[in-house]
């Protein structure tokens, strides 16, 4: 992939395997992906596609039975994939790469005041002590949109609502002054009105602190609001990556088509919502060819034999499907989707 912007984190040919009761599960199957400084990258895909595993591996938080089989995660000229000791990871976790977790209701320690939980980070990563740390904590609370901060500092998590708690989780993440912020389904546990507020907050903080944000989500609605680029994952592999409008309105991979067709907004009233037939492949077995082929109505013979390479569509848009091979028959996306594409492109041109 071209480096138009400067890459802050580079994943190269990453393979991650888990050992489960003597059997080997390959969760990540050779991913290469660059993260550019200051961008918002959304990683989308269904459950079990490996989104979370990928992000956990970046922070060294894989479960004990998981390991990086091959490939590299390059950050700051270091290969994070080679890290083994806690000491090495402590230099990265929080300090360089921080995380906003999924469920704010359970992500905070119920027995510590939220002030102390944020301050722990401030002390650890900014080296402030005493009054300075306290002042910084209050500033962070203000930054994430909490009022009456002195009183709130002394309160416990159970005294906050879900949206407020997510703000505090975000405050903890940015208290570490990280370069990269990983948001693992940041809005899934929140109700819709709060979702928009939290996404706006993240956007504001991104500008203020110069963060690079990775959103992990399966909610395309969220993606559309916040992402600059999208990487679509299927069965442990990135199958299409491009700028947001490219994925939404120019996508080339049948799986991405299916994903977008599944948006409830695209269905018409009275009709059944679209769903992708079949189930994702069994990751315990070695996958031959294109992982999506068995569920793919456009599958070619070669899809079952050889794994497709990345085909470049534009400077920023790459797709892993044999359909883009010069020898492949020309295939158009489903009619409903074509209408959506046309509408979207027109809207973008306006």
């Amino acid at each position: 992939m071209t480096l138009k912007k400067s890459s802050i984190l580079g994943i190269q040919n990453l393979v991650i395997q888990f050992t489960l009761r003597g059997r080997i599960l390959t969760a990540i199957r050779g991913i290469s992906l660059d993260l550019y400084k200051g961008e918002s990258l959304a990683i989308v895909g269904e459950s079990g596609s490996g989104k979370s595993v990928l992000m956990k591996s970046i922070m060294g938080l894989l479960d004990k039975n998981g390991r990086i089989k091959q490939g590299q995660i390059i950050y700051n000229a270091q290969d994070l994939g080679k890290f083994t000791t806690e000491q090495e990871w402590l230099g990265i976790r929080g300090k360089e790469i921080a995380m906003v977790t999924q469920d704010p209701m359970t992500s905070l320690n119920p027995l510590k005041t939220i002030g102390k939980q944020i301050e722990e980070c401030v002390v650890m990563h900014q080296g402030l002590r005493g009054k300075e740390a306290y002042a910084e904590t209050l500033k962070l609370l203000t930054d994430v949109g909490i009022t009456d901060v002195q009183k709130r500092y002394k309160q416990y998590p159970h005294e906050f609502s879900g949206g407020m708690r997510q703000r505090i989780v975000i405050a903890i993440a940015i208290a570490c002054k990280p370069n990269i912020l990983i948001c693992d389904e940041p809005t899934t546990a929140l109700d819709v009105t709060i979702q928009a507020q939290i996404l706006q907050l993240l956007k504001n903080l991104q500008q203020k602190y110069g963060l690079t944000i990775v959103y992990i989500t399966h909610d395309l609605g969220v993606v559309a609001k916040v992402a600059d680029r999208i990487a679509v994952m299927y069965a442990g592999d990135v199958i299409e990556v491009g700028e947001t409008h490219e994925i939404f309105f120019h996508s080339k991979h049948p799986y991405t088509w299916a994903l977008i067709s599944s948006l409830p907004q695209l269905g018409s009233k009275g009709e059944q919502l679209y769903s992708i037939k079949g189930t994702p492949p069994n990751l315990f077995q070695e996958i031959k060819g294109d992982a999506f082929a068995p569920r793919n109505p456009y599958a070619l013979k070669i899809d079952f034999i050889e794994r497709p390479p990345f085909f470049q569509v534009s400077d920023t848009h790459y797709v892993r499907t044999w359909l883009l091979d010069p020898l492949a028959p020309k295939v158009e996306p489903p009619a409903a989707l074509q209408a959506f594409f046309a509408e979207g492109r027109q809207y973008a041109n306006d």
Binding site: L61, R93, G94
Partner: peptide, 14 residues
């Protein structure tokens, strides 16, 4: 519990 995951992610020593 989840809060332990968050604490690990923010860089707290084991």
């Amino acid at each position: 519990k989840d809060y332990i995951k968050l604490a690990r992610a923010k860089g707290v020593k084991e």
